[in-house]
Amino acid sequence: MGRILLVGRLAVRDLRRRRIEAALLLLAVLDNRHSSALERALGATPRDVSAALAAAQVLPALAGAVLGVFPGGFALFAAVNAITGGDGDRATLPALWQLLAVVLATVLVVAALTALPARLGGRRPVTEALQAELT
């Protein structure tokens, strides 16, 4: 029972963290509107801007996902086992492909969350985006 509660709390915390991450990503994109508009004024294409923003978010996300699964996840698993007395039959590690899928999914979601608003913003006239940040 204790383990279920622990896993449940971890899951809720993870969900909340994901929502916060998504909100932060959106904020990061909004925060970059002035820089993006300026880059476009200087000759960056909408695709250049989207790619740069996505890369700026995806690279740390990739590092976080990898570190979170391999040392982080394994350490958490070992800690939970140690705290609860090590019931290996009921708590098993996911298969390697599942762990890799989590990493890949994280990267794709982060890329989409970043690139989509950047792409939509890229259709606004440059002047409008530049002036919006001055008011």
Binding site: R40, A41, P46
Partner: peptide, 23 residues
């Protein structure tokens, strides 16, 4: 198109703004 326009801005035009607009 927007892409061609961006390339044109890149090479043919230089802008100076009242608010500087530096990074």
């Amino acid at each position: 198109g927007e892409r061609a326009l961006a390339r044109m801005r890149r090479t043919v035009v230089g802008f100076v703004f009242q608010a500087f607009h530096l990074m």
